[in-house]
C-alpha cells in the first residue's frame, strides 16, 4: 500500500470536520450580516474578515487535533509547538498590556480595535497547544494500556 500523507481514516475525519467548519463559516457570515444590518458596524473590515476566518479555523484545528487527524504519520509536531508558543507569546505581549490602557483601547467608538488581533492569535495558539498536549497524553495512556 502507498504511504499516503494522511491515512484514509484521517482524511475522512478531516473531510467531516472541514464540512462542519464550512457550515460554521456560513452561519457566521449570515450572523455578521444580520448584526451589521440591525446594529451597525462592529469592527473594521480587516478585523471582521479575520474573525470570520479565525473562528472556523480554530474549530478545525482543535477538532482535527482531538481526532488525531491534524498531523500525518511522518509529521514532527515539536516544531509547530515551538512556533505556537512564539505566536502566543507575541500575541499576548502585543495585546494584554493595552487591555486597560486609555491611550490604546481595544474597544473604541463602539467598535473592536484592530489591536485585538494579537489576542486572537494568542488564543488560537494556546488552544491548539492545549489540544495537542491533551491528545498526546491520551494517546500515551492508550499506548500504555497495552494492545
Amino acid at each position: 500500500m502507498k504511504k499516503a500523507r494522511y491515512d484514509e481514516f484521517q482524511i475522512s475525519n478531516r473531510h467531516r470536520i472541514g464540512f462542519q467548519s464550512f457550515i460554521l463559516a456560513m452561519i457566521l457570515i449570515g450572523l455578521n450580516g444580520y448584526i451589521k444590518a440591525g446594529y451597525g458596524i462592529w469592527a473594521s473590515p480587516l478585523l471582521e474578515a479575520f474573525i470570520m476566518v479565525w473562528i472556523p479555523g480554530l474549530y478545525f484545528a482543535v477538532m482535527s487535533i482531538s481526532k488525531n487527524a491534524y498531523f500525518s504519520k511522518n509529521d514532527y509536531p515539536i516544531a509547530l509547538v515551538f512556533l505556537l508558543g512564539l505566536a502566543a507569546t507575541m500575541g499576548v505581549f502585543s495585546t494584554v498590556p493595552f487591555i486597560f490602557s486609555e491611550e490604546y483601547p481595544l474597544i473604541e467608538n463602539g467598535q473592536l480595535s484592530d489591536r485585538i488581533m494579537g489576542l486572537l492569535i494568542a488564543i488560537i495558539s494556546v488552544g491548539m497547544g492545549v489540544a495537542m498536549i491533551v491528545r498526546r497524553v491520551l494517546n500515551r495512556r492508550v499506548d500504555g494500556i497495552g494492545e
Binding site: 500500500m1 502507498k2 504511504k3 499516503a4 491515512d7 484514509e8 481514516f9 484521517q10 488525531n68 504519520k73 494517546n139 492508550v142 499506548d143 494492545e147
Partner: peptide, 8 residues
C-alpha cells in the same frame, strides 16, 4: 501504512 489510531 496507517496510524495506530486508525488500526484501533
Amino acid at each position: 501504512g496507517v496510524t495506530r489510531q486508525t488500526m484501533n
